[in-house]
Amino acid sequence: MSLFSIWGQYFPSYLQGLGVTIELTVLSLALALVIGFVLALMRLSKVRGLVIVATVYTDVLRAIPVLVMLFIAYYSLGAIGIKLSGVEAAVLTLGAFYGALYGEVFRGGISGVDPGQREAAAALGLPPSSVMRKVVLPQAFLAILPPATNRFADIIKDTSLVVTISVADLMLQSYQAISATYRPMDMLGLAAIMYFVVYLLVSRVLARWELNVQRRRS
C-alpha cells in the first residue's frame, strides 16, 4: 500500500485523536492559568504564609517529573479510593504542573511593571483590584505573552504523555497504528506532521498577536 493511501486510511482515527489532544490541552491550559494566577497573587502578597505555601508548591512541582505526577494522579490516587479517569488525571496533572510554571511567568510579568504605574493609579483613587485590572495586568501582558506562548506549546506536546495511561489521543492512535501496519516511521510521521502543524499554528498565531499588541502601544 502506498504511503498516502495508508495515511488516508488512518487519518480519521488520527483526527479523532487530535480532538482528544486539543481537548486535553484546552482544559489543562485553563486550569493552569487559574492556578498560575492564584500562585502569582500569593507570592506577590505580603502575607508570609501565602508566600511560603506558593513557593513550596512551585518548587516541588517543578522538581517532580510530570510523568511521575501523572501516575500518582492516575494510579496512586486510584489505589486510595480517588478514582480519576485518564482525562481527568491528565488535566489535573498538567494543570497543576503548568500552573506552577505560569505562576512564575505571571509573577515575573507583574513585578516587572514600573511601581510608578501602580502609584499613579492608586493616587487617582482606584481601589487595589482596579489598579490590578486596569493598569498592572494590561502592562504585564506584553511581558507575559512570549513565555506564556511557549508554555502553551509545551502543554500541547506534554498531553502526549497520556499514551502511558491509554487515553486515546493522537499519540496513542499512532502508537496503535504501528502494531497494526508494521510501518512505524510512516505512522509516527503522520502524527509528527499533525503535531508540528498545530505547534506552528499556535506559536505563529500568538507571535503575530504579540507583535500587534506591541505595535499598537508604541
Binding site: 510608578g116 492608586a122 487617582l124 483613587g125 481601589p127 494590561p138 502601544r217
Partner: peptide
C-alpha cells in the same frame, strides 16, 4: 483612603502616564 485619593491630585516627577 479612596475619598482622599479621589480629591487629592498628584503629579509625579516621572509622569507615570499609563503606557498602555
Amino acid at each position: 483612603l479612596q475619598d482622599i485619593r479621589t480629591h487629592v491630585g498628584m503629579v509625579f516627577q516621572t509622569f507615570n502616564l499609563f503606557h498602555h
